[in-house]
Design a binder for these strands. Structure first.
Lengths: 342, 342
DNA sequence: CTGAAAGCGCTAACAA
DNA sequence: TTGTTAGCGCTTTCAG
């Protein structure tokens, strides 16, 4: 026996539409999905019925039937840290926007990077990994499962997966070169968490630029942090206390650079007169201080966009689509926090 | 004809498990869902088969069959503004974490508040509205559809919907009272976007506290902004220029308060010596400046938690579950940015 | 305690 | 062009 004869519930199904339109459910399906040929007359009838009934197809039935899923999971490592806030939110925002445009559903997963849980991806049509910090096994798992996936903010060479990264070392190089061209020779670097690829690459770019300009690397000038403002403060204080302190400092994130600025002010130092400062991110907060921060613009939104687009390509493509590796250029945004050395 | 005989694909279904375990799919379903009685012997056989096959039930089939959905949509108005960043990300983070704990899938929707699109909620089991800014119609729609929903960060009196709000006026009152007890009489307020309930309530609390303490309201002391740091800067400058300026200012958000601090420093004013300052949010950034910001702690995480819990209750409950209205208390966090008036 | 079978709502061969 | 029909994978009566 039928469980419910045709329960007086409100959930209208394709069948109701078909009945009202006086056609078969197949025809309804056709016009809904815009596939195949349907007589204009019928198309209109169906469209009207859909409107009248406010019919919305059940995504579950659709997915069960097609075996395809429009759900895209965005995996973000669960982090603390002020820096990450800006980065992560921008990413979520941009991804969300794009997914809506592509009619994809965005499933948000904040992953504990150390969790070895199988990461229930069943029912998910594709995955965007935002960076990889301890989540390598999860990516491998997804690839093995044949799931379309793209990695964002990390250039993964050794895995057959699409990735969209930012040219961190190039950006860092540009920043340092700019400083050098301004006449600076004593340039320090406050680096982020070098276990992340981004921070490591920025450090690398800093080192390279110095070398290429024939400037010796001074270990004391390289201060490693975890990206937090607290550690940035410590680094800044250390820098200002040095007997032979730098005339310029390249900081791995804007929020840390802002902290350096704050410390400078407290110590009665003037930026850029006493110290040239350059950040990374183009975090809008950098605009509001007394002196606007010169920084390396990181195309976060573009990155998210490319990520979603690429994932969408992978999802719609045949099984064997080749992964793409994309590197996005950064842009030096010159504002007021650097000064030529006279 | 069967489309695919039993394609050599890798997707294992409940049937495969049943075969391997030597029982019927019904039995498998029973042990998976822990319903009904199954012989211990069979339970083990099934469990083993599940493990061996790494079987994960198709959520689509499950949902199609049960008509229930574990997908929770979190609707966040798409906003700009630095303030919102902290707020929104905290919320997303906390909601994500809780959903994982409850085994709910989190679907993220960044809504353009003005979009009148029907908001495809089919397939969604419940909705969390983060604030309501222009999304009232969407909530009404969801309620009408019989969808469990809860509103967060907004106390909605006139709609039969659960809501979890923060006692904004109470928090503001505490802040102002604290200032008054310190001896301040000339207290200004930099308010946020008063079209949001939070900002309006904070302003209301400020006004009430002043009245209750027999202090006259001075219109010039109330500066309305859009929560942005830029406007906060403008407000601060205005405040410092007043011939008869305030001795204390209560600011509607920490990020704006931080901006006030920055302006003060630029102008050579000392906080708290020249001006007592108190914020709202307990944004961790408030900790890193030269003087730690006294603020009103807003239990964002708790709010998200309560929201998910309540939604979960609604989802599991019978149809007619009554909505709950919850108001969370704030807490004054006294740090270093206020001084007693001698 | 177990299993056969109906059905959730939709898509896609295939036949007409 | 249209409709018939067989599943998609799972839950849930209902009869053993």
């Amino acid at each position: 026996m039928t469980r419910t004869k045709k329960s007086p519930s409100k959930n209208i199904s394709i069948e109701d539409v078909a009945r009202l339109a006086g056609v078969s459910i197949t025809t309804v399906s056709r016009v809904i999905n815009k596939v195949g040929q349907v007589q204009e007359k019928n198309r209109v009838k169906v469209a009207d019925a859909v409107k009248e009934l406010k019919f919305q197809p059940s995504i579950f039935a659709q997915r069960l039937a097609t075996g395809k899923s429009n759900v895209v999971a965005l995996l973000i490592p669960r982090y603390e840290g002020v820096f990450y806030s800006f980065y992560a939110l921008e990413l979520i925002r941009a991804t969300g926007t794009l997914c809506e445009a592509f009619k994809l559903d965005l499933l948000l997963h904040l992953t504990d990077s150390h969790s070895r849980e199988p990461l229930n991806l069943r029912g998910v049509g594709g995955v965007i990994f935002s960076d990889i910090i301890g989540t390598r096994h999860q990516i491998e798992e997804a690839i093995k499962a044949g799931l379309p996936c793209v990695v964002i903010n990390n250039y993964v060479e050794d895995l057959p997966v699409s990735c969209i990264a930012i040219d961190n070392s190039g950006g860092a190089k540009n920043a340092v070169n700019y400083l050098v061209n301004l006449g600076h020779k004593k340039i320090a670097h406050i680096s982020g968490d070098v276990t992340t690829q981004a921070a490591a690459k920025r450090l690398e770019g800093y080192v390279e630029a110095l070398k290429e300009n024939g400037i010796a690397i001074k270990e004391e000038y390289i201060l490693k942090t975890d990206y937090s403002r607290g550690q940035a403060r410590g680094a800044a204080e250390k820098l200002f206390k040095m007997p032979d302190g730098p005339s310029a400092v390249f900081v791995a994130s804007d929020s840390m650079a802002l902290e350096v600025m704050a410390v400078a002010r407290e110590l009665g130092k003037n930026i850029p007169a006493d110290l040239s400062l350059i950040g990374f991110d183009d975090n809008p907060s950098g605009l509001y201080g007394p002196v606007a921060l010169t920084t390396v613009r990181q195309p976060l939104i573009k990155m998210a966009e490319e990520g979603v687009k690429e994932l969408n390509r992978l999802i719609s493509a045949k099984k064997g689509a080749l992964p793409k590796k994309i590197v996005l250029a950064t842009e030096l945004v010159v504002r007021e926090s650097c000064r030529p050395l006279k």
